[in-house]
């Protein structure tokens, strides 16, 4: 019986709690999606995607803890390293629409 199976309160385990927290982060991501879709400027979208990437890293880490799968952290690590690439690619692209790449 691992930590995530421990009963927290009223029959809810730590796993349920962590999954609920992850769902809350996804709700935050949906809120941030509004900024990514609406804009109005490209800088808003770049920032929104960056925040979404960081949010996803958190979600993946919480999922890994809740489901007892440490290897999920590998995926979170990939996003943490490559989300930066997406951000700099888009932000350099917005200057003169790719003329400076």
């Amino acid at each position: 019986m691992s930590v995530v199976d421990a009963s927290l309160a009223a029959g809810y385990t730590v796993e349920d709690f962590l999954l609920a927290v992850a769902a809350g982060f996804v709700v935050l991501a949906i809120g941030m999606l509004y900024r990514a879709v609406k804009g109005p400027t490209m800088q808003d979208r770049v920032l929104a995607v960056n925040v979404l990437g960081t949010n996803t890293v958190v979600i993946l880490a919480i999922l890994g803890a809740a489901l007892g799968e440490p290897t999920f952290l590998d995926i979170a690590l990939v996003y943490a390293l490559l989300n930066f690439l997406m951000a700099i690619a888009i932000s350099k692209f917005t200057v003169e629409r790719g003329g400076v790449l």
Binding site: P40, M42, T94, E96, R97
Partner: peptide, 15 residues
């Protein structure tokens, strides 16, 4: 809606 604002943003970049 977003299209017009994008055009404005790119114009500013060009300037």
């Amino acid at each position: 809606m977003s299209g017009t604002t994008d055009g404005d943003a790119s114009d500013r970049d060009d300037d």
